[in-house]
Nucleic acid binder design. Structure first.
Lengths: 411, 411
DNA sequence: CTATTTAATCCACATTATGGACTTAATATG
DNA sequence: CATATTAAGTCCATAATGTGGATTAAATAG
């Protein structure tokens, strides 16, 4: 049984809660942090510009060739970049050796718990998915400890397998179906969990984050879309993750994006949240299935394809409600694009019309352009991928601690 | 006639549009930027910790006393901090000389255009308002050029006066009643303006920004409230500015916070935005006055105090609608507090009840705590103050360019 | 008056980036 | 084929900045 002690992912509890972007005192800069920052600049540019020569990197970053060379040397040693043949066509002068991100060493683990599944994936530094596994289990019927133990086993297997491929898993993220603040899963109705510190139930460090938020990040990094969008990811509940300028917006307590309880009809039917007429009552999975008479989303799409009137009407109604809620969301958060994921991805064909209709009539007067409406290209893996991607992105944003020469964190 | 050439606020056009927080390539760090950053750290700590000795600064920031001393020396020379008697009570050892922010040199200009007023204010580095002036003018009846010429005159007078007080105005911000993206005022219904680059019509550099956003920042810096809140600032329209972790959230195009067009009743009355049942139709100034029969907000408050049934009903209705819209806003953006400003400040007493009622019944089920509801303590000056504060905050966040030894920006 | 304590400054040193010289490896040209 | 040209990458002396410990300064305690 492999312990997760590869790389800097040491055994131990420690839930790193992704807190608010508080106005923390900007830390003083010393020589080593200057170096760390420039390393990040170089590595970030390598990622952005594909295979680049050291000379080009110097040009782009404004650093000198000397500095860049030293950094690239360190990054090579750390296995984070690799040299490749320089792509050149008949230019004069000494050819440069290009460097690009290497997926051969650093990797990250993404985990997810949903009502019916446990899943894990491992992505390398190039954001290539190296491993994916999922198990169908009914997590509703068992206590958190049991589910987490099961997940831990799955995670260890994934890490072991990654290691046999030469990969070093440097961190992990767990996606859970509910609002998370400071590592605490406040409530997960689908699981029947309440106030669980899921991270503390694992024997390796993990960041716990809301599934909707991670799905949005997955869409950002693996969906190849734009850098500004609102990602709607509904299953039983309806969540949304907002990405602006490549950054996730979490709000004051990390609870932002509760699209499912945006008010659509103030006097509508009661909702489990205590309110009335929330979006979830019109476009949530339960509402959709009940109105259409289908047992699950796959059956619903079948009915839709067959032209079943009830199913079509249900989607039409859900789409209209979603359009109204999204109108409010766009007015408040101003996303560049709206991406429909979760159960709305397979239903896109049938809900997109009413959503677009509602949004364009209601928004056109106030803004130059109504946000585009797009489908998520990622399946149910969006959140798992986002979780792994989050770790990778942190490494790229601050590679220094992962260098072979890194100080052993002695305070 | 004084030209605005004090400090680094040189004559010239150049509208610095406050663009998106794009994923710009993080710039490389050199020795000088390391120094600049540490200067900011020291100055920021001086602001945060009131009068502090150099020794204490070293302790807090983690820099050495040597470094701190050098920095403080430079900041003293620049007139950004001042020495004061060390507050001590019977401790042993050599007493330190405390330094604190000095309001004697650096200042900023805040400007605002509303339908009925032009106003300006000057704040110093300690965020003390040194000057305030406003003129009642009907800006609806004249073209942008004329209004801007008038504003420019007002601004020059303010800067001159500041200079006679020994202040050097280092920047300015203009608040306008409409969405701004990249310096372009897209539309200002209250002024009858459309697609105006207001900054280009002034002979000094200015940043143009939405009134609601600046009002929120004014509340943040001058209202003494928390660092996470949604500030509602309605007049004719209803806008909102979200501050999270001391930072303004602007969305992808800077259009976030259009609370006025959040949908309250999807099938409600038509709105000028093209939609139906927008909040503005229930809680906008026009709707309130029409429903209550008052001619203006002052008269409305009188009627309310007198217990007029129509007026009370109008506020009740507006409050309920506002509560519904804010419920959606809280679900989506997760602010820590909701602050009511604009016309809702004088009406707070009458709208707060229904707003709280709606929010608490609708939100309690999903979150541990419902955001607090508070009144803005700032009057109509919030936006002007926020504008000046914005400039001051930039100076404190990066004081290096304002040092006497600053490089003359030769690229 | 002396010891103690803390603040602020001074000075030698470590770290990091710079800039120009140098080396290397390719193409162009005669 | 030999040589010039061009560009990539490395080397080395230098500059900028922060560090850490020693030193000086200014107060209280006994």
């Amino acid at each position: 049984m492999g312990s997760m002690t590869t790389g800097s992912m040491t055994t131990g509890s420690g839930t790193t809660g992704s807190g608010t972007t508080g106005s923390m005192t900007t830390q003083a800069v010393r020589h080593d942090s200057m170096r760390a920052r420039n390393l990040a600049v170089v590595l970030g540019e390598v990622r952005r510009s594909g295979p680049v020569t050291r000379a080009a990197l110097a040009e782009i970053t404004g650093l000198t060739k000397t500095t860049v060379s030293k950094m690239v040397g360190d990054l090579l040693e750390a296995g984070m970049v690799a040299e490749s043949a320089a792509p050149r066509d008949g230019e004069r002068g000494r050819p440069g050796t290009a460097v690009s991100l290497s997926g051969d060493r650093v990797a990250a683990l993404g985990l997810e718990i949903t009502a019916g599944h446990l899943s894990a994936c491992v992505a390398d530094l190039t954001l290539t998915v190296r491993l994916r596994c999922a198990q169908a289990v009914d997590n509703r019927s068992r206590p958190p400890v049991e589910t987490m133990a099961h997940l831990q086993e799955l995670a260890h297997r994934a890490v072991d397998e990654a290691r046999t491929a030469g990969l070093s898993v440097v961190g992990s993220t767990l996606a859970v179906p509910g609002p998370v603040d400071g590592g605490l899963l406040h409530t997960a109705p689908n699981l029947g969990w309440r106030g669980v510190r899921a991270g503390d139930l694992l024997d390796f460090p993990v960041t716990v984050e809301n599934e909707a938020n991670l799905a949005a990040l997955g869409e950002l990094w693996f969906g190849g879309g734009p850098g500004d969008f609102l990602h709607v990811s509904g299953e039983t509940g309806i969540g949304a993750g907002l990405v602006v300028g490549g950054e996730l917006f979490r709000g004051a307590h990390g609870l932002a994006g509760e699209l499912g309880h945006v008010v659509v009809f103030p006097d509508g039917p009661d909702c489990r949240c205590g309110g009335r007429g929330c979006l979830e009552r019109y476009a949530g999975q339960e509402a959709l299935l009940r109105a259409s008479g289908a047992a699950g989303v796959p059956e619903l799409t079948e009915l839709l394809r067959a032209g079943e009137a009830d199913a079509l009407r249900a989607c039409e109604r859900a789409g209209r409600a979603l359009g109204v809620a999204l109108t409010s969301a766009v007015n408040l958060m101003d996303p560049g694009t709206v991406v429909l994921g979760g159960i709305f991805a397979p239903l896109f064909e049938w809900v997109a019309g009413p959503v677009r209709e509602a949004m364009s009539t209601r928004l056109a007067g106030m803004r130059r352009s109504v946000p585009e409406l797009a489908v998520s290209r990622l399946g149910g893996d969006a959140a798992t991928l986002g979780g792994a991607g989050r770790v990778i992105h942190r490494v790229i944003a601050d590679p220094a601690p992962h260098l072979p020469t890194a100080r052993p964190a002695v305070p």
